[in-house]
Design a protein around this nucleic acid. Structure first.
Lengths: 253, 253
DNA sequence: ACCTGAACACCGTTCAAGT
DNA sequence: ACCTGAACACCGTTCAAGT
């Protein structure tokens, strides 16, 4: 029941469980130093600059020494993705809807500050202490609204997903070369489309392009768009809460 | 106004504009053959199996010959991500809400059939003919509901993002080793969490775990969860449409 | 026990040379 | 113009050897 399952060693280390060494020289590094160095490199040069060799040289060690602390580069990326997350905002005293918006916006801002997170953040369920702290605070903000645990987790994952895809869109459009160097930025986008679409195969899309739908204030996606989509989700949550409060059905299906 | 912008050559080729060669031997390949070979490899071995060398050898050519057709491996991935997309479902005669659900579910199914799409699909706005066809059909399904072009595109991007994050969750949970070989599957998840969380730092989350919130029918995420989150979004869209129909405000802010 | 250095099996991409 | 083959500058990861 409460038996421990085997987790990747890097996850144990994420939770502060560095193995206690008994014999031989004391370790010169720990996971925090390594992940911090990797994060600094990624912030400065992007994910492409992060190699076992570059991280090792930044902490002053041979590349192969890192394998005492992480099982693989993949595990190093997992550690980076947890260490880079700041503390979640405090839900105390805030109406649930305000907090959900604040939480989602903060998640998106973190992704935009560290765009290298985009390709690695969504591929794994949260297991690190910082990411789980965010999840905890969102569940707390939804306490007492009549939702069960599974529903609250679903809401959290829908909001986290929205933050992620919005950030990905902004990163590729606003800063053309941050993520995908092969595709132009927002300004080119509408005009590039206009040159490619024929109105017969793409009737609705070319009508929208002709009407200027792609020209937002700052391009393809701006903050107004973020708010717009988020309101869609929050309206849905509100409808669900209203249904639960009125004591309608309990499970659907 | 309708002037052509410079696009990556691979995008030109995506739209069937292979350059017309005048002198010398005729090309032995085209982008379709190369992308299809790469897709077959990715389906069989995952993204890690796709290298310039492996793709080249499958089409019977030296690795360096591929650079006549794609500018870089990055461009090859872009081509793969468009070629792998099937035709969108036909919106004709369907109520908008039914079609939006069908469309989103079909997007998610494509991602689950080709999980290697997950790390590459979200990083770039759609520029290929197949992905834009999906966008066109969704805009068409929302015609006549009082939404403007920008709003319809925002709805499309919220739905596409939802399909993507849900697929990522299912891929990592249901099939533990598809995307991230370092993290266990759904069965382990709740038990692993239980061993790590202390109730003081994570009060809401450990309460939810204790209540069994993570044990769905098939694990962490199942189809019921997909439907649940999608309904949140569609309820939001419906609320927006109702507002527009009643002629309330026109843009907010 | 921790770290190094050499070595292995790969990468993506360039460029000159062939036809 | 297309394709090849050699070459370059990297990768992540292993393993034996040092301390």
């Amino acid at each position: 029941m409460s038996q421990e399952r085997s987790l990747p060693p890097v996850v144990e280390r994420l939770w502060g469980r560095e193995p206690v060494s008994r014999r031989g020289p004391r370790p010169r590094l720990d996971l925090t130093m390594i992940a911090s160095a990797a994060i600094e490199i990624a912030d400065a040069e992007g994910l492409a600059g992060v190699s076992m060799a570059s991280v090792a040289s930044r902490v002053g060690v041979a590349a192969t020494a890192l394998y005492r602390y992480v099982g693989s580069k993949e595990e190093l990326l997992t550690a980076m993705a947890d260490f880079v997350v700041p503390m979640p905002p405090d839900p105390a005293g805030r109406p649930w809807r305000d907090y959900l918006e604040l939480w989602t916006r903060a998640q998106r801002d973190t992704l935009l500050e560290h765009p290298w997170l985009l390709p690695i953040a969504q591929l794994t369920p949260p297991l690190g202490p910082r990411r789980l702290l965010w999840l905890d605070r969102l569940l707390a903000a939804l306490d007492g609204m009549g939702l069960d645990g599974g529903e609250k987790i679903n809401v959290a994952s829908a909001l986290a997903g929205y933050a992620l895809t919005d950030a990905a869109l902004v990163a590729t459009s606003g800063e053309p070369h941050v993520v995908d160097p092969g595709v132009g930025g927002a300004d080119d986008y509408g005009e590039a489309l206009a040159g490619l679409l024929d109105a017969e195969t793409y009737p609705a899309l070319s009508a929208a392009v002709r009407a200027g739908a792609l020209r937002g204030a700052e391009g393809w996606v701006d903050d107004g768009d973020f708010h717009f989509g988020l309101e869609l989700l929050l309206d849905g949550v509100e409808a669900l809460i209203a249904r639960r409060a009125s004591g309608d059905d309990v499970g659907g299906k």
